[in-house]
């Protein structure tokens, strides 16, 4: 059976949630994790940017 946790960067290392913290700046740990780490990082970055944009729009208007 497929180990679903292996595709989740926050649970992949030794099955411990939070082993790799996903921040908008990324980390070597996420890069080393490969495809899932990259996707998680980009997603987080996009979320933060979207949040920032929303905040700016709110501020300006």
């Amino acid at each position: 059976m497929e180990d679903k946790n292996k595709n989740n960067p926050e649970q992949s290392k030794d099955g411990q949630k939070g082993a790799f913290e996903v921040t908008p700046l990324g980390s070597l740990g996420l890069l080393a994790l490969g495809a899932v780490g990259l996707k998680a990082w980009r997603q987080k970055r996009a979320e933060v940017m979207a949040q920032q944009q929303a905040n700016n729009e709110k501020k300006n208007g």
């Binding site: 292996k6 890069l31 080393a32 490969g34 495809a35 899932v36 990259l38």
Partner: peptide, 17 residues
């Protein structure tokens, strides 16, 4: 160099996953 090897890692892990 870091981007290059991370790109390879990314492709390899995607295939394995």
């Amino acid at each position: 160099n870091l981007a290059d090897c991370s790109t390879i890692q990314s492709a390899a892990t995607w295939i394995m996953e």
